[in-house]
Amino acid sequence: MNRINQIFTALQANHRKALIPFITAGDPDPELTVELMHCLVDAGSDIIELGVPFSDPMADGPTIQRSSERALKHHVTLSNVLDMVAQFRHKNEHTPVVLMGYANPVEAMGHAVFAKKAREAGVDGVLTVDYPPEECEQWVDCLKQHGMDAIFLLSPTTKPERIKQVSKLAKGYIYYVSLKGVTGALHLDLHDVKSMLEKLRQSISIPIGVGFGIRDEATARAVVELADAVVIGSRIIEEIENSPRDEVLNKVKILVRSLRQAIDEKLITSQSSAE
């Protein structure tokens, strides 16, 4: 069993939900990324989504685009990102790492070369934002051969036939984009999220994480009631962006820890009220 399945199995056994933070590799600078990853784990994260910087992050909002630009100022490449994962693995063997990025850097390296190197580095899953299921059968096979999960996005506008199509390819977990728009957007409608998740569960058996629009303890708390995991990206990037470099680790730790507590508290209260 791979690390992603292990983590979800363990969490489910304890009636807990997964906290999945997103950071961009190389932001604010490449030297800090591995430390930040360890810090995320210390603060209670279950899986790390590590963004591969790209010059044209079309599906992301301004916050994550700026983080990509900061990383690219340091000339962070896909190879560098894989090195960071390998370095992270020196001290951490159990926390799953999912790479999140765009197709072009992966194509420039070559699918097979990437898959082999990523596996060796200790990557567990890959989410390629601009590879919809129609365009990536070979890619999914390639990841599978190397024991990695292809993570897919689903959105509020995804039609039932596509949900089925994605469910056949997706492994690890599904990343449900909780609102229309780009990463970092506001206005999360929990009622919509709830009814859509009910629909998704009819064809999807793997865990479902919810992301886009989760900004604080209250939204995180509300979302874990509905989903198996909470993905938080832009809010963490803002913390990195707004903190002096020597305070980044501490600030991120405080933020992630408060989110962890919010998620766990909710579960404790909902369990006791059910009794």
Partner: peptide, 22 residues
């Protein structure tokens, strides 16, 4: 039908745009 000119073209966008393009 899916917009390919040989290996080129296609639809390489995030899921959030798929229904609008459909």
């Amino acid at each position: 039908k899916r917009g390919h000119f040989g290996p080129y073209g296609g639809v390489f966008v995030a899921e959030t745009l798929i229904s609008a393009l459909d």
